[in-house]
Amino acid sequence: MTTVVDILPHILALLGDGALTAAQIAAGAAAIAFVGGLVLAVVNVFTQLVAVRLAIAAYTEWMRNVPALAHLFLLYFGLASVGVRLTPLAAAIVGLGLVGAAVLCDVFSAGLRALHVGQREAALAVGLTPLQALRFIVLPQVLRLTLPAIGNYASQLVKDTSIASAIAAPEIMFFARNLVTSTFETPLIYASAIALYAAIVLPVSWLFARLERRLAAAGGMGGAR
């Protein structure tokens, strides 16, 4: 006769393992998304070649108008059929990372365009190279401008790791479903899973909110125009 109290630690331990996997997926995908998005955005905004901009636009539109689940299935099942076998974890990281790169490309592009063109001009005028201007003047400001959007993306990413359960990645929902079949404490298990997600996502949002406030206080964009 197992009571709720007996079984809860077991549930939480297993879900906790799932949370670690979710964290790994999120971290990996975030890295790909951040670096990829930034590079794409810089190229997108500063290139003169229409063909390049079209190519990037095609990429971002494809990634953003097709569900993430489809991308994961493509990477996991699709590639396997032509001999490239990715682990569930790898497929999840690459899939969510590629989608994230498209999202952040749009975010950073908008941020770069919003930044006053005079900022870059002033940097070049004092003798910085374009790359230096980018590194020391443009990017820091763009990052501050886009922080809210990045925060939104981060929260969404943590939640999207749940999709990886569909390709059998050992994360939270995967363990939750297994637990249900083995213990039948359905409401309790899902309630715990949901609570666990909330426990991860809320601090992430809160952290970003604090970061925004601190950067705003440290003399925002004020006279920087």
Partner: peptide, 12 residues
Amino acid sequence: VRAVPLLALLLA
């Protein structure tokens, strides 16, 4: 609602 993944909600 914003802290919970849609999939978790659907499965639950």
